[in-house]
Design a binder for these strands. Structure first.
Lengths: 331, 331
DNA sequence: ATGAAAGCGCTAACAC
DNA sequence: GTGTTAGCGCTTTCAT
């Protein structure tokens, strides 16, 4: 329980003033080498480390804290983003606070406020639906914010890092069409979610460019999570004009589709946004839109650090690339 | 870029002293209701929120920060733990800092030091190998630490939250034996890792209690990650006395085993520590040791909060339960 | 019930 | 090259 030593303690023991200790700690130039050595020795002896909290209390000195609010850190997609942010933040001497909004706007706002109370230097948020109403410049008071995966609103007052959702979906569906499929079903989640909207748009564009007409019976929306996607798959396969392939707009949905096909002992081409580890072991023809979620985090963190360092250019929208992966196919 | 208002600003505008504002903010009793209302109105008007950094600078006032160092936040196991910690921390008004040691002791120590510089109230760490040499009471200076998933050392000077590794492995292997298997292979990772040691011990106990003799050719150690486990599986299946079942000591290894079996188009009973989403869709007889990783985090956080609140009882070792899951079997 | 003043650990401005 | 002083935003005696 020995109390933590302060600069004052070091100064006393080394027989110098507190300012000299500060100079040594901060590697300022104008210090006598002998003095520096003596002070450093005392620092080591006492195990002194600067109190960052006191340091960043001074005006101008921003704290080295970055706050992240994502939907659910337990979701591998978000934790990969967090990992990417963490990596870049760490390289630049910043620390990362993490919390989950559970997709509730009120909680999201509460978390951002708490972060601001702790003097974070910047914020990264994977916004909930309706974030546009709660995340405002007045709330932020000049603290920079970068949104990731989804925009806060459109047009967006903040920097935003997104996946190329539309192109990814377009390519996956086009790949199915090239394989001869003409009746391609789509299962999407909540139609208000940005990523799903973009991916659905990509699907429609692919059909249109191939001269195919989208069929309402082949498009199921408003379903959420693997459970509902499983039902939706059964529904698609129980009707007269069955699809020969299904595009799932994310991996939760893909999981449901695969479960349903497994239950029916039925083989169908499945395309999906999001890659997954067991893709190679599933006995189905798969077409996956793959990407590195950590890169989303890295890009968001880099942009945020630029803002923290004073960049005041207009808000940017950064789009991260995606690739098509067909398990079992040579490349 | 309007500067953040301070208590001083509120005091001036409300025509009271800063101390009265402080009393209102902290809900202290001895304030005139009228004064309180007037101050509160000013607070709302200005959007004032207490600067937590300044607050916790006062001695005695511990910060509301908790620091987590895990091996890799991108690993779903660790991110689930983080999510559990976050949940409990949030309920108690604490915030969570996260970082990844990448299993490097030097980085782990560096991160802990940085956390301590930021005046964290407590620490949770999933220790690397060799953490015993770098995580010492001198480093911590009275800041409480709880280790999770693995002990820092044995006997452990810190509270520790573990899975019931031995019992889980014992039950899984016993289940295989009841199904008639007598030649059961085991593939483990780095033999220095605590969890692997315990799970291997459970495997050996199960064999012994069933009157079976462990065979060196059926035990493969020192392999790391899915890649090596794939090779190890091929090795096990290429020898004369082939196993009829394989126990994988974690899900990375299980992934490798399943990959290898898929490549060989071979069906074999597979038992594994760690459950996974696609277990139900894999066409293999599976026996899984399942548990809730979030609970590990919750338990660690609860223990840490007790320490932060002044508990000085001797270090505890908490063991979290595991269950057996056999996909496709009724329960 | 309210306020004045000191001080937490540090850095910036300005001596010397 | 080195030291003195003031002050960041807050809480805590101790007065009034």
């Amino acid at each position: 329980m020995n109390a933590r030593p302060t600069m004052q303690d070091v100064a006393r023991l080394a027989g110098v003033s507190i300012k000299t200790v500060s100079r040594v700690v901060n590697n300022e130039p104008r210090v006598d080498p002998d003095t520096r050595a003596r002070v450093q020795a005392t620092i080591d002896e006492l195990g002194f480390r600067r109190n960052e909290q006191a340091r960043s209390l001074r005006p101008g000195q921003s704290s080295s804290l970055i706050g992240l609010v994502s939907g659910d850190l337990g979701n591998p997609f978000y934790s990969a983003i967090a990992r990417g942010i963490e990596e870049v933040a760490y390289e630049h001497g910043h620390l990362l606070l993490t919390a989950s909004s559970e997709e509730q706007p009120a909680r999201e706002r509460q978390l951002l406020e708490t972060y601001l109370q702790h003097n974070v230097a910047g914020l990264i948020v994977a916004p909930t639906l309706d974030a546009a109403h709660t995340i405002t410049p007045e709330l932020l008071r000049g603290v920079p914010l970068v949104s990731v995966d989804r925009p806060v609103s459109d047009p967006d007052p903040f920097d935003t890092v997104l996946l190329d959702n539309r192109a990814g979906a377009y390519r996956a569906v086009t790949h199915l069409i090239h394989d001869g499929h003409t009746r391609i079903g789509i299962i999407d989640g909540n139609p208000r979610v940005y990523t799903g909207q973009e991916r659905t748009a990509g699907y429609l564009n692919a059909l249109r460019d191939a001269g195919l007409t989208p069929h309402p019976n082949l498009m199921i929306h408003g379903h959420h999570g693997a459970q509902h996607a499983e039902q939706a798959t059964h529904q698609l396969l129980s009707q007269d004009q069955r699809p020969s392939a299904i595009f799932a707009t994310n991996n939760r949905i893909a999981t449901g589709v695969i479960r349903a096909l497994h239950a029916r002992r039925r083989t169908l081409a499945v395309a999906s946004f999001d890659d997954f580890e067991f893709a190679d072991v599933i006995n189905l023809p798969l077409t996956l839109v793959s990407y590195d979620a950590m890169d989303l985090g890295r890009a968001a963190a880099r942009r945020l650090l630029q803002r923290i360092q004073g960049d005041t250019s207009p808000p940017q929208r950064l789009t991260q690339p995606v690739t098509l992966r067909v398990p079992g196919e040579a490349h």
